[in-house]
Design a protein around this nucleic acid. Structure first.
Lengths: 253, 253
DNA sequence: CCATCTTTGTGCACGCGTTCACAAAGACAT
DNA sequence: ATGTCTTTGTGAACGCGTGCACAAAGATGG
């Protein structure tokens, strides 16, 4: 069976580098802020500072889109907003479904950053029958049984998975079978998908673990003591005095 | 730069590449699953498949940690779990605070993936006085006024920002001033921090925008037309108009 | 003890992404 | 029109990450 791949070299023809694509939303946000302040033009230096990147990198990124700047002046904010929006496909409406309406799913449904950028939450789906019909963010939750019908009726091509890890692959399979070709996965699981389907993952605990690594290294530098290979006996967690409330565990790890 | 004491570029640890560090949590998760099934050893091929990476890459990653494998056999699961945990700093307890208890903040507080990996939610902090004392995930929310005291009393070095974008930088500054040196930022804003402070960001809408780009290209490969030439200025800021003008991370309904 | 087989650990080559540095291009003043 | 000044666009060098391919290391069986 075809083991799916998360990332594909994609159409290697005249494509925009992946790293550049990942930064376009960053530029777009900065430009939108400038637009709302009615700033007419912006230099690469200023925009780069606002987006938190190197100015040379920004200019090279924009060069992949075309020559939209004016030498000696900078970039026209409105024009650039439109060009980037078009390049990212944000000038059209993208209906998305969110599967798994736990704490995180509800947060996503309420997230304002989606609607303001062309993403429309077409449906909320959960496996719990008790949730069915209950409105979240003004949208009634529907049951998983109707997943395929919902996808097809709304022409959904982007799905968001916010289920527990154990259900993620199964949900993913059903989404893909129903026609979804892009998936944003919040469940801490490696998803297997067929070719042609894009998967991006957001893992909350992984980010924290990466921070912990650097944090530990910073702490180790200060003590300047060569850390042995032996377990560093840190302060014990002491009495955690039991579970501070029963954690609903949206995502068991 | 101000307050720049550490001259280090925050990379160049003991020689472990950043890309490898980012994958270690992935391996750790796969190994933990194997450990729970009492699998004694695992080959690089099997583990790579479980983690969704190339086996050669996995072996090279592990080679940075040391020679923990046995040729002809594979890796000892338990031993590797311990080594990776130690390398990531997960053998010690990391108290974290979450600032901004909206939908997302509440979801994070309930997230099971934190506690199970050495991260302990030491406190929840919100600017809304109405939230004070109200328990979320069994932890009473505290007011922003006490932020500095909370950080210091609990020895917190990792902070999570889940506030609206407009408040993020201010919260960040206070966290850093109080001693936090690692920040996980969910607000759609570029944070400016002094040297020595690590920031990782998770932006929900950026991920969707990247997916939309690929989705559009997939659709465009077939029908090059369909460019409706919609007016560029169709976006409407739903609500909340801060000086930043951008979308808040999460707005309580 | 030796032969064979499995799997690790890694040298090497390649491609992508980043950054520097600068020529070309255009605005603006005179 | 011409010179000057600002800023873009990009060629080129460099470094990092990835993946191949294989030798070394150890287990296993006779």
């Amino acid at each position: 069976m075809a083991t799916g791949r998360t990332h594909r070299p994609a159409t290697r023809s005249r494509g925009i580098p992946e790293a550049t694509v990942a930064r376009l939303p960053l530029y777009l946000r900065a430009l939108t802020a400038l637009s709302e302040r009615s700033v007419p033009t912006v230099s690469s230096e200023e925009l780069a500072a606002a987006a938190g990147v190197n100015s040379a990198k920004l200019r090279k990124d924009f060069s992949y889109l075309g020559s939209y700047g004016t030498r000696g002046v900078g970039y026209d904010v409105e024009y650039l907003v439109y060009q980037i929006s078009r390049e990212l496909g944000l000038t059209q409406d993208w209906p998305v479904v969110i599967v798994g309406i736990g704490n995180l799913g509800a947060a996503l449904a309420n997230y304002g950053g989606f609607a303001s950028r062309g993403f429309r939450v077409a449906a909320l789906i959960d496996a719990d029958p008790a949730m069915a019909g209950k409105p979240v963010a003004g949208i009634p939750v529907q049951h998983t049984d109707d997943l395929e019908k919902i996808i097809q009726d709304n022409g959904v091509s982007i799905g968001v998975i916010a289920t527990p890890a154990g259900a993620a692959q199964q949900v993913c399979d059903r989404l893909v079978a129903a026609g979804v070709t892009s998936i944003l996965n919040f469940a801490p699981t490696v998803l297997t998908v067929p070719d042609g389907v894009d998967v991006r993952k957001v893992d909350l605990s992984i980010e924290l673990q990466i921070l912990a690594f650097h944090e530990q290294r910073k702490a180790g530098e200060e003590t300047a003591a060569g850390d042995g290979a032996l377990p560093a006996t840190t302060r014990d967690a002491s009495a955690d005095q039991g579970p501070d409330g029963d954690v609903p565990a949206v995502m068991p790890a």
